[in-house]
Amino acid sequence: MPNRRPALNPLTTLAAAVAAAVMTTAASSWAVSLAVASAAAVLAVRAGVGARLAPAAAVILAPFWLSLLIMHGLFFPEGRTVLAQWGAARVTTEGLGFALDMGTRTAAYVMVFLLFSFTVRLPDLVAVMSARRVPPQFGYVLASTLTLAPAVTVRLARIRQAQESRGLVLRGGPLRRLAAARQQMVPLVLALIQDAGDRAQALDSRGFNASRERTSYREVPDTAAQRTFRAVALAAAAAAVGLRISGHWPEGLWMVGLWPDAPSPVALLAVALLARGVPA
């Protein structure tokens, strides 16, 4: 992939994602939520991660929406406007509205954060965090988990093959399968724990847990404009939270969704910047 544009600092995209999510939650309107979710989807496609993001989001959101629809669409005791009724199940306008609100809000939240995690360069994020004096252990856990995951998958496949070759038939009823799962878990966990023991000593000998301040080999570019943006985005998010909690939220404007008031463009801008994180 040609690197047309230098990537944004991971903190910038993280701040954008957080600000977008917080403001969407504070706005509490399905129209805003839907706009943010769609914007995130468009930007994901433009950043070239659409194909990976779509199934990931669908796996999370589809069962969630279904669950909401059944839960609130059919059973909403607080509902007044009854549209249909079968025995205990009542379809109410309020229930459907609640399901819509919650469904779109969660969709916006999921899309924005998936866009962040699918576009961020993890080594950059870890490097930036260690420069910001986040305990280096945090970056270690984050990066190591993501490198370990494929290795564990390979190992599990190997264990399964070795055991099948020993005459363990991995078919049959649920109890059989449970027993087979136990036989695979034990060597997997033992091996992982033993490997981890060796790695601990190796990390210690490479100075990992030293009290000294770390430096970073990887250089992550940052600009004054990005720093300003981060400050503005986070301030806007804090303002939105303040307005909402203090009860001074300009409710009506949001419901109409036409008024170009402050937080809404910022939320969209935040998402826009997020997508610049990865060169298209």
């Binding site: 260690s130 280096p136 490479r206 100075g207 990992f208 030293a210 000294r212 301040e213 770390r214 430096t215 970073s216 080999y217 250089e219």
Partner: peptide
């Protein structure tokens, strides 16, 4: 190992 020892870049 050098990062952990605070060696400059």
């Amino acid at each position: 190992g050098l990062e952990n020892r605070g060696v400059n870049r």
